[in-house]
Amino acid sequence: MKLDPRTKLFLAIVVNSVILSAPPVYSVLMFAVPAILLLFEKKWKFVLAFFSLYLAAVLGFEHLKTMDVGRVGTLAVSTMMIVSRMMPITIVLYYVMQTTKANEFMAGMSRMHVPNKVTIPLTVMIRFFPTVFDESRAIGNAMKMRGIRLFSLQTLKNPFAILEYRLIPLLVSITKIGDELSVAALTRALTPEAKRTCIVPIGFHVQDLVVFAYCIAVVVLFLLRPVS
């Protein structure tokens, strides 16, 4: 099932804002949308693992949040909080990144009359989040082979060394990737002044309407909730 890039953007914004300000019932309701959409993409195992971990974190947090659990408990509860709050956002972003190609995203943004000076860095940024993590993981592995770890006695002795061992290789590699990316963009005649055409047809269909209606319904339900 194919959604319009604008619908995906709307979904991501609604999920973010509802989840970060509403009680857990609404976040479970919102979590369902990307989960079902991912099921259409045949990601059964991923959705199942994510959903069970998410439910465990939400239930655990709801049970423990009113108690004064001490310092260690606070850390555990904070972790649960981060998991329960961040996972739905992660799953939406994962869905958006997995299914949206850069050209579709740019076409969607240009239909919304967003200037290219904003669209180009935004597209690069969205494409770059996974790259940052991948590069960081690869550098971590390389450093592990040389016996340099994030949590070790050596690191404790000289915490700034870890900046040098992890951050600088990361910066060097992503700057190189960035330079290559801008060269690739230039060879495809990407300029902020010209309007681009897109070979993939984008537009609103029935599935977009369903997702829109569902998101708006959840937001309305949230806004009209009985205040205790």
Partner: peptide, 30 residues
Amino acid sequence: SNTLVRDLVNVGIFAALYIVLAFLSSSVGY
């Protein structure tokens, strides 16, 4: 305008890195 595209690509890259690093290092505040 070639340097403009390079600038814009750099903004995207460093914004992604900045957001990731800011969130990781602000987790000290938990």
